[in-house]
């Protein structure tokens, strides 16, 4: 920093401007669009990339764009997971996902995270998971109604939260989906969910450090790798992150890879945690450097 003519204040102001520009030009999670839009978008391309997109459109009829801000994998995964469980999940999957979410904070604390520093992220995550799995919204830890947070006394004798009769009615699902979409478009809360998914990813890396060490380059330890690449926002993810997160949640993920290499005209599909039991498969479209959400025909 010494030789730089720019101070922290300049850098932060510049970063805020860039973020605002990106925010103004793209939604965090778009409405669903027909996959044919992608073909129009790349109509100038005559290479294998377009062939692969054609392949995608034959199997998937719609997709949602997710903002390309370095968090797109986590954001796409998070929203797609909630939608899958809400619309297609079994009662057992929904209960598993919810119970796992509630138990996750203690697991992270056991991994060395300080509880109060992850509390806010955890609360937001459990809130969206509860919405998608038919559980009531968990009681808030703090009351913010006066502007000053006051801890809420939890009633020790209260009943454990009850899941709504599953499957939810179509009306209930539609309502919950629109709430989820609103949350995912509301930056601060959406960021908290995204960040908690990063923590879950990092927690899984650390719990299975011996296994993951072999995938980590540059002589970094698993902890260093997490500090540098996972536990900060806007760091892009690689396949190893997908391996970790899908395993951490036991959620099957299918990534449809498209690029312009001409070895094949088919999009390559890779399944992560194929036998995962906590949700139906989450499908994502990969274009170099970016993930979006895909919906099968």
């Amino acid at each position: 920093m010494a030789s730089s003519a720019y101070s922290d204040f300049d850098v932060i102001a510049q970063e805020e401007r860039v973020r605002d520009e990106i925010a103004a030009s793209s939604e965090l999670v778009s409405d669903p669009l027909p996959t044919s839009v992608l073909l129009d978008e790349y109509k100038e391309n005559k290479d294998a990339f377009r062939d692969k997109l054609k392949d995608v459109t034959s199997k998937y009829d719609s997709f949602r764009r997710v903002r390309g801000d370095g968090n797109c994998f986590y954001r796409a995964f998070g929203f797609a997971l909630l939608q899958q469980i809400l619309h297609r999940g079994t009662e057992e999957q929904a209960r598993k996902l919810y119970q796992q979410a509630v138990a996750s904070k203690a697991l992270l604390v056991a991994q060395g995270y300080t509880e109060y520093t992850i509390e806010d992220f955890y609360d937001s995550y459990v809130e969206v998971i509860a919405l998608a799995t038919g559980f009531p919204k968990p009681p808030a830890a703090y009351d913010y109604s006066t502007g000053i947070p006051v801890p809420v006394q939890q009633d020790a004798n209260s009943e454990p939260p009850k899941q709504l009769p599953w499957p939810l009615t179509a009306q209930e699902r539609a309502l919950r989906e629109s709430n989820l979409l609103a949350i995912f478009r509301d930056d601060p809360v959406a960021s908290a969910v995204v960040y908690y998914l990063r923590l879950l990813t990092a927690g899984h890396f650390k719990t299975n450090a011996e296994f993951f060490q072999g995938f980590i380059e540059d002589g970094l330890t698993v902890s260093e790798f997490c500090a540098r690449e996972v536990e900060v926002m806007a760091r892009e993810c690689e396949q190893v992150h997908i391996v970790a997160l899908s395993a951490a949640l036991d959620v099957p993920v299918r990534v449809v890879y498209t690029d312009s290499s001409d070895s094949t005209s088919q999009a390559t599909e890779i399944n992560f945690q194929e036998e995962g039991t906590a949700a139906p498969t989450v499908s994502l479209l990969y274009r170099p450097g970016h993930y979006d959400i895909l919906y099968a025909r």
């Binding site: 920093m1 995270y113 902890s223 260093e224 500090a227 540098r228 900060v232």
Partner: peptide
């Protein structure tokens, strides 16, 4: 935040992250 910048040599855990 951690990154490839002139403040290298500092350990990532001493850098900014949301926790």
């Amino acid at each position: 935040p951690p990154g490839d910048d002139p403040m290298s040599g500092e350990r990532p855990e001493e850098r900014w992250n949301p926790t």
